[in-house]
Design a protein around this nucleic acid. Structure first.
Length: 459
RNA sequence: GGGCGCGUGGUGUAGCCUGGUUAACACAUCUCCCUGUCACGGAGAAGAUCGCCGGUUCAAAUCCGGUCGCGCCCGCCA
């Protein structure tokens, strides 16, 4: 009884009898001679059959046979195993396959998105998507190793957490044990990672799922993955330096053909970006058709606050934060923040990293003193009661000797999509949602039973 | 919430502007032929009441109105 080996391992088995297994990717029947391309997770191999078998596309089979060198004039240079082939001796059909609703030997761009998502498990068989997810794994593996080697601890934070009044709309989950109350799914692990700094971990990271109940875009999904990171006893320079190195090393390792337009990454102030490029995420590429050109930049010196729509009841302007309520003021602006003076001029210790015109990450140095965070919350118009209710735990935690800290978060899906030259992050998310937030394959969201609703206190 | 685009066999398109044969083509599917193909080739077959509803007309895939679905963009997204 032969043990099954992977197709990539047939390369050094010339002359040997082996067993391989996979699905039929193509069939070329010549009557008394037939070929099939067998596909497994590691590659593709041509199998020669003496007689035409009753094999159909996508049937799952196991084959035993001899691996032979191909004659010189029959070598296929297009595939890795093009110099060898298997002479089949025994075929076992493990499972027959229905005809697929679309062809799998293309890149899929021609097929309607809706039908691709409905049959996502077939769509994922495509070469292009297989590559995307193998690369995605290489990237996350490299990042994990890079940060682990630098004393970072990967820590998971809760998905069932608390709704907060600021920022994006929350996805909420009704509580059974606390009828009428709701958990919220995190928009980001922001508060937890800061609390981990209070806890003394000093260097934390997480490949974190985040949720935002807002309208989607080509580069936005309701559910997405963030590389989340936080460090204690650092300033803006250290965070930027470490992350620049992380990005450069990751790309050098996974994409040796990609070229950085400028190293180190140029730094542009928000003001300069707006004046020169009319956007805070400028596309600095020289040749936008060159898929290997990467134009990174940092955008810094963001205004902390901007005027919100409408006015306060007393006629004073309403303020909102431009990026993150937990950010600290940039060096030199702390006094203005504490005195709530020249609010529109205050600069935040905030930095965005931009790649080819897309914001792929952003972070800041945080307010590690409770009185500073409180000032920010007051400026954006929160009443004492709201502050206590929504941020009381943060203020309390910071008061127990929180170290100075700061961090960053990368939109991992977006980052990978750009590196893979994919126009849409759905191509690098295994089971993405449609524009209106549905999962066409699982048919979610769906209705739940009256009993479930009752248990949740929703009836 | 708003703007734009698309919807025709299983998949992708043509036809629509300028209404009129049996709705065309490619791929996929099925049958047959084929001993060196590699997205094999050849012969044949089946498969669409043109998203849905209504209107105009002798006649609607085609014109008009509505509706549904999908995508992209603006708003929104700390």
């Amino acid at each position: 009884m032969l043990e099954r080996i992977l197709i990539k391992n047939t390369l050094n088995q010339t002359g040997e009898k082996v067993k391989i297994a996979g699905r039929v990717g193509a069939r070329r029947d010549h009557g008394k001679l037939a070929f099939i391309d067998l596909i497994d997770c590691s590659g593709i191999l041509q199998v020669v059959l003496k007689e035409a078998e009753d094999l159909r596309l996508n049937d799952v089979i196991a084959i035993e046979g001899i691996i032979n060198k191909r004659p010189e004039n029959m070598i296929n240079k297009e595939i890795e195993t093009g110099g060898i082939e298997m002479q089949a001796e025994k075929i076992e059909i493990l499972n027959k396959a229905d005809t697929t609703p679309f062809e799998l030997n293309t890149d899929g761009h021609e097929v309607n998105e809706e039908i691709r998502l409905k049959y996502r498990y077939l769509d994922l068989r495509r070469n292009r998507l297989q590559k995307n997810f193998k690369i995605r794994h290489q990237i996350t593996r490299f990042i994990r190793n890079f940060l682990s080697e630098r004393d970072f601890t990967e820590i998971e934070t809760p998905l069932l957490t608390k709704s907060t009044p600021e920022g994006a709309r929350d996805y909420v989950v009704p509580s059974r044990l606390q009828p009428g109350k709701f958990y919220a799914l995190p928009q980001s692990p922001q508060q937890y990672k800061q609390l981990l700094m209070v806890a003394g971990f000093e260097k934390y990271f997480q490949i974190a799922k985040c949720f935002r109940d807002e309208d989607t875009r080509g580069d936005r999904q309701p559910e997405f993955t963030q590389l989340d990171m936080e460090m204690s006893f650092v300033g803006q320079e250290e965070v930027m330096k470490l992350n620049e190195e992380l990005v450069i090393e990751t790309i050098k390792n996974v994409y040796p053909d990609k070229k950085f337009l400028q190293l180190p990454f140029p730094r542009i102030s928000y003001k300069e970006a707006m004046e020169k490029y009319g956007t805070d995420r400028p596309d600095l590429r020289k040749d936008k058709n060159n898929q290997n050109e990467l134009a990174f930049c940092w955008v810094v010196d963001f205004p902390f606050f901007e005027k919100d729509k409408g006015l306060n009841p007393d006629g004073s302007p309403k303020w909102t934060f431009t990026h993150n309520p937990f950010s600290a003021a940039a060096p030199g602006w702390h006094e203005k923040l504490m005195k709530k003076k020249d609010i529109e001029k205050i600069i935040a210790a905030q930095y965005d990293i931009v790649l080819n015109g897309f914001e792929i990450g952003g972070g800041s140095i945080r307010n590690h003193k409770p009185e500073a965070l409180k000032k920010v919350l007051e400026i954006i118009g929160l009443k004492e009661k709201d502050i206590e209710e929504n941020f009381g735990h943060m203020l309390k935690a910071l008061a127990f000797g929180a170290p100075p800290h700061g961090g960053i978060a990368f939109g991992l899906d977006r980052f990978i999509a750009i590196l893979q030259n994919e126009p849409n992050i759905r191509e690098v998310i295994a089971f993405p949602k449609t524009g209106d937030g549905r999962d066409l394959m699982m048919n979610a969201p769906s209705e739940i039973t009256k009993e479930q609703l009752k248990e949740l206190g929703q009836l």
